[in-house]
Structure formats: C-alpha cells, structure tokens
Computed example of a mutant assay.
Amino acid sequence: MSTSDTSQNKGLRLSARQGGWDQLGDDSKRVRQKVFIEEQQIPSDEEWDAEDALSEHFLLLLNDRPVATARLTSQGSIGRLAVLKAVRGKGLGKKIMQRVLEHCRRSGLKRVTLNAQISALSFYLKLGFKVAGEEYMEVSIPHLPMEMQLGNDLQQDSEVTEEELLDALENTQQLRIHGHQQLQLCIRVLIQQARRSFALETPAYMDKWFDEAALNPLLALGRRHQHSKVQWLLGETRQFSRQGGALLKLHQRAPSHIEIRQSHPLYRPAQQAFMLIDERHLLWWPHHQELCAELYTAEHREAYRIAQVFKLNWQKSETVKSLQTQSL
C-alpha cells in the first residue's frame, strides 16, 4: 500500500510516498536516470535490475516533482539512494533515509545493510551505520559495505515511571515499553491524557491490557462533545462477543459513544496492533500478543502516518451486528 505525508515551508510543499515499483517506478526512474546514469555515468544495464520489482520504494516530491528516491530489498538491503543535484544540501537524503529506517523497524527487521559510495561515507556514519567490510569497486566507483543494528536509538528496557511517561508526552520522541506492568501503566496514562479521540486497531482484542479502571475514562471522553471519538477496530469479533469483559460492558453502557467495528478482510492486520490518542501519541505493537511495544509521542510523524492508515481502515470496516442487539 502506498502511503504519503506532506509538510510545507515558505511556499514549498514536500511530500513523501512509499510503495511498490508499479506505483512509484516511473517517478523513481526519473531521479535515478538523472543522478546515476547522466551524472555518474553508470551504464543503464547496471542501474536497472530485477530487484526493483521486488523492493519497497520511497520517494520525496517537492511541489509534486520527484527529487529523491531509495529502495529496500526483501533481504533488508537499502540502495539506489539518489537526490537531484539542484536540491542537495537541504537534508532530503536524511529525510528519506529516516523513512526507510522507520519502515524497517515497523517490519521487525533487526539489521539492515547498504553499499555506500566512499564519497557518501560520512553521511551514512552520521545516520548510525558502521563499516562492515573492505573497500571494493562497483561500476568503477569505490564502495564500502555498511550495516546498522536497529533499535539502538530506542530507550532500553528499563522501567518507566508514570512521571517519566507524562514528561515524554510533552516532547516528540520514541520509547520502548516492555513488560506487562509497563504496558498497562502506559495504556492507562495515555487514555487519561485523551482529550479528543481514542483509536485502537488489533487483529484480536487483548482484554488483559484494558482493565475496567483503565477503560472508564473513555466513557467520559465519548460523551465530552459531538466531535469526540472512541473507536475500536478488531480483526476478529466473534470470540470477543462471546467472552465478555470490561470493554464489552463499557460498550453496552454507551453504544452510541463507544464504537466497535470489524476490519474489512482486505485491510485486516495480521500481527501488529496500535493505539492512537488524539492522533498525537501512538503505542505500536509489532505483535499484538507480545509484551513489547513502541511509544511515539507528541505528534511524531509516525503517529501522523498511522492516523491516516486508521482513517482508511475505519472507512472500510464493517459494523458488528451481534453487538448492535446487545444491551445491559
């Protein structure tokens, strides 16, 4: 699925896209043609290969004009990073690499590799890559193999207090939340901070994360004003409807304020789950049954991206008929 976001500065509109070769190939080709074939004189038969059709591609556009591209192969190798000469020195290479690395973390990759041209070595070192081999020649240009172990920029698995969580919500950052008690604390604090909206999407509802004390503030949130939203999007609802629990009781008390829907089969998550608070704070599980999640705070761009994904999935979702007929 192709995703995009947009930022504006002094009349310039920078947008980002991600997707397959069939979606982004034409625009990516234009950038790579200028940089690698025309500027660096790399033979065209060396530039285009079978990996393009199998890779995830990333693109930056300035006022809808493609200016930077990169790809990630199925083996976790980043390559074909190119920025048009006219816009170099403006941080676009760093921006697109950050998007690639964020995608790698979301996908659960623990290690990524790349082959860096020697002239770009300092750029990759500043991003956190390390040299992983000897210099070699490729298309008559000296290169060095590099690698990065992912997760080094996250807080380690030390315990986080409620005060530290509240402080974290004031600044844009990324934290790792680990363990049953830490996850419950994080969920409770996030729900208490909700002012406009709460959204959760998961393949299957995990009642152990949401006790009655944590859920109760959502009832007040749903009733706060006409624009308040409390939305639960579940991949599976049959077992949820049968087993009961705190969320089902809450929905029975206020079905018009607490919405529960089932994901459309084509948009149903396989493993990951996420919780969004006011579209500003994101708690993301790589696997919904594991005791480890990542917290993105204070309008982190990942929270913005997931908010757009959730809106689409919610629009495609289905009502749960068995819940519509249930009452206290």
Rank of each mutant, 00 (worst) to 15 (best):
P269T: 15
V230Q: 04
E290Y: 11
A53S: 13
C292G: 07
L200D: 04
Q271N: 14
W232T: 02
Y205T: 10
G133M: 11
R13P: 03
V87M: 06
T297W: 00
R188K: 06
A246Y: 01
T73F: 07
R238E: 13
R280F: 02
V35E: 04
V83K: 08
I277P: 01
Y205H: 15
H180N: 05
T172H: 01
K94P: 05
K130L: 13
L250N: 00
T297H: 01
H178N: 03
R176I: 03
S74P: 00
F129K: 11
K316N: 11
R268K: 15
L175M: 14
M1E: 13
R80S: 04
Y296H: 11
L101F: 09
Q252L: 06
K95Q: 05
E135W: 04
L276P: 09
L291T: 09
V320K: 02
Q272S: 13
L221I: 04
R32A: 01
S197T: 07
T73N: 04
S74V: 08
K130N: 10
V131R: 08
P43T: 11
V320N: 00
D207E: 14
H281I: 05
G93W: 06
L24G: 02
E162Y: 01
D49T: 06
P66D: 07
A116T: 12
T6C: 07
G108E: 08
H251N: 06
D5A: 06
T161G: 08
S28V: 08
A254V: 01
S122Q: 15
F36K: 04
G89A: 09
L221K: 00
W284H: 12
L166V: 03
P269L: 14
Y136R: 11
I118F: 04
E163W: 03
E201T: 12
L291A: 13
L54D: 03
K85T: 09
A50M: 14
Q40M: 10
R238S: 13
E147W: 12
K85S: 12
R196S: 09
E294L: 14
Q252T: 02
Q308G: 15
R65D: 08
K29A: 06
H300P: 07
A132F: 08
I141H: 13
V320G: 01
V320T: 00
L248T: 00
E290L: 13
S55I: 05
E259T: 09
K29D: 06
V309T: 11
H281E: 05
S322F: 04
L328M: 07
L234W: 11
H257L: 08
E134V: 12
